[in-house]
Amino acid sequence: MINVVDLKKEYKTGKEVVPILKGVDLTIEEGEFVCIIGPSGSGKTTLLHLLGGLDTPTTGTISLDGSELTSKTEKQRTIIRRREIGFVFQNYQLLPTLTVYENIIFPLHADGKKASPKDVQMLLEAVDLVGYEKRFPHELSGGQQQRVAIARALIHKPNLLLADEPTGNLDRQRSSDILDLLAKFHYERKQTIVMVTHDMFAAGYADRIILFKDGVIEAEVKREDDDYAKFLARFMA
């Protein structure tokens, strides 16, 4: 379970202090698929980076399964990130000089662990990239690169998957493939997924949708709520 309490994040540009998150309180249950939507600059990606320990808040706390992430040192956060969290980014962020296979096993390699060939094979099959193991990222399409990124995010069996606009650079068909993959993994592995998106087609996959505006949670709705579709339609329209 993720517990966020009064989270604030400010950036300094010269003498000016720019508040990005202005006090966010949020609880995400284990195994939940949560989608965060909101206008550009509303703080969605900042929140995702803080949840993943890629950045630290100005004030406030984040707890992952009862352990306070925000009180950890950078080294401790790196270990947690490598073991507990998987990241998928809009721009894939694959390492260009590594092959598909090497990119996928990279999180384990960075943690000093060896990948089980069986696990890699299973993931390659799941993301439909068997036969592409020795190719380099520049030899792949955008959709294939994102599928490598998803396999890489899951190789260490994280409890939490954070996805920042995972379909942002893809056409509709490729987007659907990626969302299907996330849905399958979520169903089979019961991982918690937090996904930031602008995409209406992606938002429909989530159990709960949180609307961000000006650094705070403006509203949220659960799939079982009667006004779920109305809420989203009003925002997206």
Partner: peptide
């Protein structure tokens, strides 16, 4: 948009 949400959920 409501139809899209409904169908997306069904697709999943």
């Amino acid at each position: 948009l409501k139809d899209i949400l409904h169908l997306t959920h069904l697709r999943k």
